[in-house]
Design a protein around this nucleic acid. Structure first.
Length: 487
RNA sequence: GCUCCCGUAGUGUAGCGGCCAAUCAUCUAAGCCUCUCGAGCUUGGGACUCGGGUUCAAAUCCCGACGGGAGCACCA
C-alpha cells in the first residue's frame, strides 16, 4: 500500500473502537435492560457499545429484557417494556431478536437441575443474615453437605412452592474460603411470590442475574459480553459454572464506570415522581430518560458519538454533561433557525418612532439561503428584564431594528443605522407569542417570542438568540411550550 | 477490612518498547470575522502520579508506593 494512504487512514481515525479479541464470524452480543422505568442517559453507554460492536463485526445484537422478579425497590413494570423499545429505537439501536427472561424460567429450572446434579450447587435454608455472616466468616452451613439426591428433592420442593419467600435459595458451591469474600457460595436462585407484570404468579423461583446469564449466554450463543466493570464478579460466577460443567462461554469485555457531572439519576426516584405526578411524565428532563432527551431536542447521534468518544476505557471517569451538550450543539447549530425571545418581558416605548416598522433578518446568519424573517413592530417593544437591569440608561441596539438609550417605560430613539453597540433581543409589544420553556431542572421560564415562532414546526429545535436552543413541543391557547435543550 | 480494576493536559481520549520534545475533542487565552454573550477561522496554553528496576532505548514491560473507583444483596 502506498505510504500516503496509510497516513490518511491514520488521520481519519475518529474514535474508532478497539478490536475485540476473538471477534469474527458469528459475533453475537446482547443488550439487557431491566424494565423498571425508562432507559436513561446513563444506560446508553452499554447500549451504544453493544450496538456499535455488532455493526462493526457484522454480527447480531439480541435484546434480552432482563425482567426477573427483582427486589422490593427494583421491580419490573409493564409500562417500562414499551419505554425501553421506544428509547432504543430513538437511539438508533437495531436488534436482531428480542427475548424475555420471564419467559425462560423453564430453561433456567432445567439448568438449575443440571447444576445440582453436577454437585456444584446446593439448596440452602439459612436466612439471609446467617448466610451473610457465614460468608464473612468463611464458615460452611449444614445445608452445604447435603447429597445431590437431597438437593434435588429440596430444589423440587422450591419450585413446587413448598418453601415460603426467602426460606430457601439455590447456592453455587464455590468455596467458602475463597479469598474474595464476595465469591463465596453466591446465590443462584431465590424464591419470590411477588406477582410479575408479564407472568403473574406462575413462577415462584427466580434466577439471579449471574445464573440467568450463565444459562442464556450459552443458550443464546453469545460470543462476547460487553458490560460495565461493576459486573466482573458476575463474570467469575458464569465462568465458574461453565468450567464446572465443562462448557466454554463467551468472552467478557468491560468498560469503566461513567458518571456525568451535573446529572443525578435515580430510576426508582424518577418512577415514584412520575407516578405521583411530581414529574410531568417520563419526558420530564429530571428523569434524564431517552424520552426526555428526545423532548429536549437532542440528536441521538450526539449521544452516540459522545459515548463512542469514551471508548472501552476501563478507567472510571466523570465527564461534565456539557461535553454531551457540545456534541449536540455541533449538530444543532448549523440547522436551527434563529428567533428573538425575551425572558420575563418588560415593555418600553421607543419615543420618536412613528407608525409600523418592518424589520428583516435572517433565519440563520450563516445560511442566508434559508431565507429571511420579518417582524412588524410599533414603537412599543418588550425586552427581557435581565437586559433592562443590565443596560438601563445605556445606548444599546435592538438587534436588526434600531438604537435606543434604554429606559424603563420609555427609551430614546437614536437612529436605525447599524453601529457597534451591545445588541439585545426584543419583540413587538403588540404582536408576539407567549412561551413557556421547560428547563432541565424542571423549572419553567416564561417569556415572549417574536410571532414567527408561532408557525414553527413542533419537534424541530430552534435557537432563541442569547438564550439557548429550545425544542417546541406543543401549542395551545396559552401559547407555545418548549423544552430547553442547552446553551 | 477483604477482593478486583484503573491512574496521559482542567475534563475525556489516542498511543502500548524506538517514528512521542505525545493525538484528537472539549476547555481556555488572544486576534480575525459576524447586526447573538452563538457559529466559523487563525494562533497560543496545558499532561505521561511518584520511586525503583529491565533495556542500547520506557508513557509504553516488571516491582513497590501513593491516589481514585467498584464489588463484598435472597437488585440489576
Amino acid at each position: 500500500m502506498a505510504p500516503n494512504l496509510l497516513v490518511k487512514e491514520k488521520k481519519e481515525r475518529v474514535s474508532r473502537l478497539r478490536e475485540l479479541e476473538g471477534a469474527g464470524a458469528g459475533f453475537t452480543v446482547r443488550l439487557a435492560p431491566y424494565p423498571s422505568g425508562a432507559p436513561h442517559i446513563g444506560n446508553t453507554r452499554m447500549y451504544i457499545l453493544n450496538d456499535e460492536y455488532a455493526r462493526k463485526y457484522n454480527g447480531r445484537l439480541l435484546l434480552v429484557i432482563d425482567d426477573t422478579i427483582g427486589s422490593e425497590d427494583k421491580f419490573p413494570d409493564l409500562e417500562s417494556y414499551a419505554l425501553i423499545e421506544e428509547g432504543l429505537r430513538w437511539l438508533g439501536v437495531k436488534w436482531d431478536g428480542i427475548y424475555y427472561k420471564s419467559e425462560r424460567l423453564e430453561i433456567f429450572y432445567s439448568w438449575a437441575e443440571r447444576v445440582v446434579q453436577k454437585g456444584i450447587a446446593y439448596v440452602c435454608m439459612c436466612d439471609a443474615e446467617t448466610l451473610r455472616s457465614y460468608r464473612e466468616q468463611g464458615k460452611e452451613c449444614v445445608h452445604r453437605s447435603h447429597t445431590v439426591q437431597q438437593n434435588l428433592e429440596f430444589w423440587t420442593m422450591m419450585v413446587e412452592g413448598k418453601f415460603g419467600d426467602g426460606k430457601a435459595v439455590l447456592r453455587a458451591k464455590t468455596n467458602m474460603n475463597h479469598k474474595n469474600p464476595a465469591f463465596r457460595d453466591r446465590v443462584l436462585c431465590r424464591i419470590s411470590s411477588r406477582p410479575h407484570p408479564r407472568v403473574g404468579t406462575k413462577y415462584r423461583v427466580w434466577p439471579m442475574l449471574e445464573f440467568s446469564w450463565a444459562v442464556d449466554d450459552i443458550e443464546l450463543k453469545m460470543t462476547h459480553v460487553i458490560r460495565g466493570k461493576e459486573l466482573v464478579m458476575e463474570d467469575m460466577m458464569e465462568n465458574f459454572i461453565w468450567e464446572s460443567m465443562g462448557i466454554s462461554g463467551p468472552l467478557f469485555e468491560h468498560f469503566g464506570l461513567l458518571r456525568l457531572k451535573g446529572v443525578k439519576i435515580s430510576k426508582s426516584k424518577s418512577r415514584a415522581e412520575v407516578a405521583s405526578g411530581a414529574f410531568s411524565g417520563w419526558e420530564d428532563p429530571r428523569t434524564w430518560s431517552l424520552q426526555s432527551l428526545a423532548a429536549r431536542g437532542f440528536r441521538p447521534e450526539a449521544i452516540r458519538s459522545f459515548m463512542l468518544s469514551l471508548g472501552m476505557s476501563l478507567a472510571d471517569i466523570e465527564v461534565p454533561i456539557d461535553s454531551v451538550y457540545s456534541e449536540n450543539r455541533r449538530l444543532l447549530e448549523p440547522v436551527a433557525n434563529r428567533y428573538f425571545f425575551v425572558e420575563e418581558p418588560v415593555t418600553t416605548t421607543v419615543e420618536g418612532l412613528e407608525g409600523e416598522v418592518v424589520v428583516e433578518s435572517y433565519l440563520h446568519p450563516d445560511h442566508p439561503e434559508k431565507g429571511r424573517r420579518i417582524i412588524r413592530t410599533g414603537a412599543a417593544v418588550c425586552i427581557s428584564s435581565g437586559d433592562m437591569d443590565s443596560f438601563e440608561g445605556e445606548e444599546v441596539r435592538l438587534k436588526d431594528f434600531c438604537n435606543v438609550v434604554l429606559g424603563r417605560g420609555r427609551s430614546a430613539f437614536k437612529g436605525r443605522e447599524n453601529r457597534e453597540l451591545q445588541r439585545i433581543q426584543w419583540v413587538p409589544a403588540s404582536d408576539n407569542i407567549r412561551c413557556r420553556i421547560i428547563m432541565p431542572d424542571g423549572s419553567v421560564v416564561k417569556g415572549l417570542a417574536e410571532m414567527n415562532v408561532a408557525g414553527v414546526p413542533l419537534g424541530v429545535p430552534v435557537q432563541f438568540e442569547r438564550f439557548g436552543f429550545v425544542n417546541p413541543r406543543s401549542r395551545d391557547a396559552e401559547g407555545l411550550t418548549l423544552y430547553y435543550t442547552h446553551e
